[in-house]
Amino acid sequence: MITVRAAKYKELDTIVNFQVKMARETEGLELDQKQLKKGVEAVFEDFNKGAYYVAEDSDRIVACLLTTPEWSEWRNGTVLWIQSVYVIEDYRGQGVFRTMYEHIKAMVEHDDDMKGIRLYVEKNNLSAQKVYKAIGMNGDHYQFFEWMKTF
């Protein structure tokens, strides 16, 4: 049975490993692991940056995601962004992300200061888009634009 909980600092290396795999699989990127580890540590050290969650199956971590807060003046509350989603290959297609999403959604529903959930997805990641639509999310309102310094 899959359970979802907040990640622990001692699981930092697992999260780093998952993020390396996710970047490689989804965008063909090789991340600088030293820089990535510092970034993951920063989240554990400052809850204002976000929070990691893991999915477990019999004490085995099989997935993780990061939530980051965005203040919405329109809603006078916080919208949680889901980022850095990774599910190990053996567990894909079994509802692991759905279970994690439902956990996050329940947190938002029970906190009056929380107003919703957002995520972004690589344009070519059609399998992820299909999953997000199946759990009731939509991409109807916004198109995501960005400018990022290169590595």
Rank of each mutant, 00 (worst) to 15 (best):
W74R: 12
V87W: 02
R98H: 06
V79Y: 04
T99E: 14
Y101C: 05
V40M: 03
D140C: 06
N138L: 04
R75F: 08
E25Y: 11
N17L: 10
H141G: 14
E109C: 09
E11T: 02
E122L: 11
D57C: 12
L29I: 07
L119A: 11
H110F: 13
Q83S: 10
K8D: 12
Y91I: 08
M100Q: 04
M107P: 00
Q129S: 03
K38V: 07
E11L: 01
C64I: 04
H141T: 15
E45W: 00
V54H: 00
D140Y: 06
M1H: 09
Q143F: 10
G28P: 00
S58C: 12
L31T: 02
T99P: 02
I2E: 08
W71E: 10
K38C: 09
R75W: 07
W81M: 07
N17I: 05
T150A: 13
N48I: 09
V62H: 02
E102Q: 09
A6F: 10
I61S: 09
T99M: 07
F145I: 05
K133I: 14
V131R: 04
T68A: 13
Y53F: 14
V40T: 02
K49M: 04
M107I: 14
T78G: 02
L80I: 03
N125Q: 09
A63F: 02
K105H: 08
T68I: 09
Y120V: 13
V54R: 02
R118D: 12
N138A: 05
K37F: 01
D90I: 05
G93H: 07
A6P: 10
N124V: 10
L80K: 02
L12G: 06
L126E: 12
M1S: 15
E73S: 12
Y52K: 01
L36I: 01
Q83A: 11
K21Y: 11
K21R: 12
G136S: 00
R75D: 15
G139R: 08
D112G: 14
E45K: 11
L126T: 13
K8H: 07
F97N: 07
M107V: 06
N125H: 02
R60N: 15
L80F: 07
A106D: 12
G77M: 09
F144G: 15
Y91W: 13
E89Y: 05
E109Q: 15
M22P: 08
G116N: 04
Q83T: 06
E89G: 08
E27F: 07
G28I: 00
V20G: 14
R92I: 03
G93A: 07
K123H: 11
A128N: 00
Y132W: 04
E122S: 13
Y86P: 04
S58D: 15
T99N: 11
E122V: 13
K115C: 11
V4W: 00
W81A: 12
A23P: 04
A7N: 05
L119S: 08
I61G: 07
T14W: 04
D112W: 10
Q35A: 12
H141P: 06
E146A: 14
K34S: 13
R98M: 06
I61Q: 05
I117D: 01
Y86S: 07
K123N: 14
L66D: 04
T99S: 14
Y52P: 00
R75S: 13
Y91A: 08
N48M: 07
D57I: 11
Y52G: 05
A106T: 14
K130I: 08
